[in-house]
Simulated scan of single mutants.
Amino acid sequence: MGNDFKSNLPHYIDGLIESYHENPISEKTTLNLPDKDEVIEIINDFEMLLFPQYSGNKKMDEATEKYIIGNMMQMVYQKLKKQLKLAFLYEYDRKNQKLMHSADERAESVCAEFFEQLPEIYRYLSMDIQAAFDGDPAAESKDQIVFSYPCITAISVHRIAHVFYKLGVPIIPRIMSEYAHSKTGIDIHPGATIGKYFFIDHGTGVVIGETTVIGDRVKIYQGVTLGALSTRKARALVNTKRHPTIEDNVTIYSGASVLGGETVIGKNSTIGGSAFITESVPEGSMVSVKRDELNIE
């Protein structure tokens, strides 16, 4: 076989198609999958709705806010309903479910429930921004935090995705969370439950697993993992509590790992950097790692 692409093209095509058929990822030949790019666009639209004056509507005031917000809501509703419908069609097809309600009806219902919760999402985010301002002496203003801190992007996307996750929307919440992960380096599963006034300082490398429960006024630093003890035989662990519970007023410093579904970090505790914790810690604890003495010659 020569090196000429054009003459070898039929061979390349046949080889790839044969590989598709020998190693199928899905049993279905046609998938009603949502459009990933459109879902990401929806996330950006929601960020504009939640923080309009930081996203191109700097002149919005009391005289114009209803008109501007109304237009944005209608625009994102049309996009969202279309992608939700595709997600529900995908779920019905994948599980061979009988259509109890049409995908269009479910999409409409989820849209209504989500927009009803949007003010509460904003209320939580305003407290997260306050937590970042109160917790970071380098922060010059809350405006700076909204405009530039990756933790606010990650937490904003999570609070949106978590609502869809709780409403039983397939695939879309994970698209949202992985978009935030790729953009910020902060990996929060949409199933994780996170309380008020939450702050991730620096953020790179943070992992928060699906069944994690985090209380109010928790602060974590870069490289923290709130994970599972083991993912061997992972399919047997579906729908089980695999990740830890972090109670109120806990600080976890960089590089610490807290693992296991039965692990509880009691309220008002501090977990030192690089700690590896697989069992519960009583409230009010100070956990640190005993290190060898640093030697400089």
Rank of each mutant, 00 (worst) to 15 (best):
I42F: 09
Y67P: 07
K58D: 14
I43L: 12
M60K: 12
Y20T: 15
E27F: 12
G15A: 14
Y20C: 14
G15S: 08
I25V: 13
G15Y: 12
G70K: 05
Q83H: 10
M75A: 09
Q83A: 08
I42A: 03
I25K: 14
E18F: 10
N71F: 08
A87F: 10
K28N: 06
L33N: 06
I25N: 13
P34S: 12
I69D: 03
V39H: 01
D61C: 04
Y20K: 15
L33G: 10
L49E: 03
K66Y: 08
Q78Y: 03
L16S: 12
I40R: 02
N23R: 12
Y20W: 15
N57L: 14
K82V: 00
K82F: 05
I43V: 08
K28A: 10
K82M: 00
K81W: 01
I25F: 05
K28V: 02
K36D: 10
M72E: 04
I17P: 05
K85C: 01
M48K: 14
F46H: 04
F51I: 01
L86S: 11
Y67S: 05
N71Q: 01
G15C: 14
M75Q: 09
M73W: 01
L31Q: 02
I17G: 02
P52W: 07
Q83N: 13
L16M: 09
M60V: 04
T30S: 02
M73G: 10
E38F: 13
L49N: 06
L50D: 04
S26E: 08
D45A: 02
L31Y: 07
E27M: 12
A63I: 00
E41I: 11
I68P: 01
Y20N: 15
T30G: 02
